Amino acid sequence: NITNLCPFDEVFNATRFASVYAWNRKRISNCVADYSVLYNFAPFFAFKCYGVSPTKLNDLCFTNVYADSFVIRGNEVSQIAPGQTGNIADYNYKLPDDFTGCVIAWNSNKLDSKVGGNYNYLYRLFRKSNLKPFERDISTEIYQAGNKPCNGVAGFNCYFPLRSYGFRPTYGVGHQPYRVVVLSFELLHAPATVCGPKKST
């Protein structure tokens, strides 16, 4: 009989979020998941679920829940969905086509923008091939755009693969920082350890 609540607040209220190319993952297990707390949290810009209804989450049990978190621009949030393409979905964070879970995003301009620009948040701009679902690539190898080998030196046709967002408070909404948490639900042939409040007695 599990009684402790799942530590969703640790994920959602973290002081610093990860850059999207180096997205953070927390495994959540052996706890009671009260999703209504999240669902009623006012400032969400997006709360979209795939393969599961957000209002039914509290009735369900899962083997594991993974909480992935990172920061992207407002106009990139739409790429955090199954079957998407674009710089983020291709080179930074890719969801599987059969994704079961929820994508939760909110504007973090007050936290993550600075006058003069916040350059701490990076994304991958160049990559030889697209990421596989949930693949994480933190390499900083110089990207070779031409035929000539770069030998690890940036220059003509040789690019550092990461780019900084440089968030400023005055940017338009599409270019403002958004914090994103992706909850993915794993249902294995194993005992369920993460259940909603109704199922955990």
Rank of each mutant, 00 (worst) to 15 (best):
N30C: 06
P177T: 03
L187N: 15
D9W: 09
F126S: 15
T85F: 05
E76I: 00
A42H: 08
A22R: 11
S29W: 06
A14P: 00
P177S: 05
P54N: 07
A42G: 15
S69F: 03
R127A: 06
I104V: 09
T63H: 09
V182M: 01
S184H: 15
T100K: 12
T100N: 08
K26A: 07
N24K: 15
Y178I: 13
R136A: 06
N13T: 04
P149T: 14
K198N: 15
I80C: 01
P191H: 12
K26I: 09
P7M: 08
K114Y: 10
T3E: 09
P191A: 11
V115W: 10
N1I: 05
Y159G: 11
D34C: 04
N58I: 06
G196K: 10
K26V: 12
L60P: 04
N107F: 02
C61E: 13
C31H: 06
Y50V: 02
E76W: 04
A154S: 15
K56M: 12
G166P: 06
L95I: 12
C6I: 02
K114A: 14
D34T: 04
C31T: 06
C195L: 10
G172N: 14
F134V: 05
Y21S: 04
N109M: 08
F99A: 00
S69K: 01
N64F: 08
P197K: 15
C150F: 05
P54A: 14
S19W: 00
N92W: 02
Y119K: 15
P197F: 15
G166C: 09
H175Y: 13
F44A: 10
G155H: 08
N13Q: 04
C195F: 09
C61Q: 14
P191S: 12
L187A: 15
T63D: 11
C195S: 11
Y50W: 13
F44H: 12
I72R: 00
V182I: 06
N1W: 04
G166Y: 08
G101H: 00
R73G: 09
L162F: 10
F8R: 00
S29D: 09
G51Y: 00
G152E: 12
C195Y: 09
F126H: 15
F47K: 04
P43W: 04
Y50I: 02
N40C: 05
F41V: 09
A67H: 01
A81R: 06
C102K: 00
P96C: 00
E141A: 11
Y39V: 09
F45Q: 15
S164M: 07
Y91E: 03
F8V: 04
L183H: 00
P96W: 00
Y121M: 09
K56R: 13
S78L: 05
F44W: 09
G174N: 14
V173Q: 14
K26C: 06
C158R: 06
D68R: 01
K26E: 06
N75W: 05
E76V: 01
T100P: 00
V65E: 01
G51W: 00
C158P: 06
G86Q: 02
R127Y: 03
Y143I: 12
V153C: 11
G146F: 06
T3H: 08
G116T: 12
H175N: 15
H189W: 07
R27F: 07
G155K: 11
Q84F: 03
G172S: 15
L5H: 10
V194N: 11
V65A: 08
P169K: 08
F134R: 07
G155E: 11
L122I: 11
N92Y: 02
F185P: 00
R168A: 13
L60R: 09
N40W: 06
F17D: 04
Y91R: 05
G83S: 07
G174I: 09
T100Y: 11
L131G: 03
N109G: 07
I72V: 15
F70N: 02
